[in-house]
Design a protein around this nucleic acid. Structure first.
Lengths: 211, 211
DNA sequence: ATGATAATGTTAAAATTTTCACATTAAATG
DNA sequence: CATTTAATGTGAAAATTTTAACATTATCAT
């Protein structure tokens, strides 16, 4: 299962709205938000319509009300606990990453690694041996995981995660994981993203479609 | 300008083919490659058709020939030099990241940071002060950059990059950069990706569209 | 050889996504 | 208070993307 584009845009809008609020905006028009989020005004209105976010016919959208609605949609009030598997370069960076714009909440509650030298049971985000992974997930009722292990072991890790109740996976291993259809997965292949940018920057507009 | 989906899939195919070759495959059928890459066989054939990658009516696609074609499309023989701006968590991880599956080439040739304590002029990937960024880019003729600075300074960095000839940007700052239409940009908002996965893992299939 | 088979390649259809157009309505203005 | 204005909200159109169907052709078996 793949995350829908409209969901991704909604998250963009959320991010933009937080920033606009910081800048003192109390209301925002679809074309302003569109400009900020890099989409058309029509797209903003259509997306908002789909999720029943309403504005005022002349006055645009209330920043606060819209953010409230978005926070509700994305359950910002509920604690979102996520585990991280693999404390290599990417894993370590993620464990330290604080997103600049969205409201802060606790994301990663524990990390797991196979390498004994990386374990840190008492750190802020404890790094535990992978043997304890399944028990931890079951005990805490975790449902979302980040895979940041080498490609060779990613499918195995994935299977184990699904086996103990994980339903959503953000995967950084450069491999397409095979999962049952109800599992949500987002593959982020950093090399491929870069290659795509390089390709399009060479071949130009026509080869890459839209604007 | 956004990177087209078919380009992204082509890169997936490339990755899968490298792996299949390592496993000893000499030819591959569209449905096998589709399975590996997480798409349908028709999609594979359609994409290959678009880029004039041909197979044999019964024998499938030659792994080597297809990879040659893909390498040509993505100019794997040409050195692809990229610079990195911002040596925080993400930047540092990227500077150390070796993609597991695609052929190795030199990607990041230099990094830039504003913090004097992070500079390392003689490292494998030198970390230089941002003041030297423009000169470096112009001198070496770099055209692609990775932005991994805080959101607050990302637009400024972006403007400077474009000003000295950068045409493609992979952006990790949680903000939509405003760029002229011919600039290629791929925004990777890690928090939003995770939020999207969390959302869909809660609300399930129907809310996230396709399979 | 020759026919059956099993894959590709391509054209058409379906589905999805985005854009457009405009009716609607709240606010501002005189 | 009526009129104008400037935004939203939505249904239809357009564009894009994906899927299906099937004609084509290389291979394999007899």
């Amino acid at each position: 299962m793949i995350v829908k584009n409209s969901i991704k845009r909604l998250l963009q809008y959320q991010m933009c709205l937080v920033r606009l609020r910081e800048l003192g905006f109390e209301k925002v028009y679809s074309y302003v938000l569109g400009r900020e989020a890099g989409v058309t005004a029509e797209q903003v209105r259509k997306d908002f319509s789909e999720f029943e976010i309403r504005g005022k016919r002349k006055g645009g959208y209330s920043v606060d009300e819209t953010l409230d609605k978005l926070h509700e949609i994305f359950r910002k009030n509920v604690m979102q606990e996520v585990i991280l598997v693999g404390m290599g370069n990417i894993g370590t960076a993620l464990s330290r990453y604080e997103c600049g714009f969205t409201e802060k909440r606790k994301y990663i509650v524990a990390a797991f690694d196979i390498d004994p030298s990386k374990l840190k049971r008492n750190a802020d985000i404890p790094v535990l041996p992978v043997e304890e992974m399944e028990d931890y997930i079951r005990e805490k009722g975790i449902t979302v995981a980040i895979i940041a292990v080498p490609a060779i072991s990613a499918q195995d890790v994935c299977n184990r995660l699904i086996g103990c109740g994980i339903r959503g996976i953000m995967n950084f291993a450069p491999i397409i994981l095979k999962t049952p259809p109800h599992i949500v997965i987002d593959n982020i292949n950093l090399c491929n993203v870069l290659e795509g940018v390089i390709y399009c920057s060479w071949y130009g507009k026509d080869s890459c479609g839209c604007e």
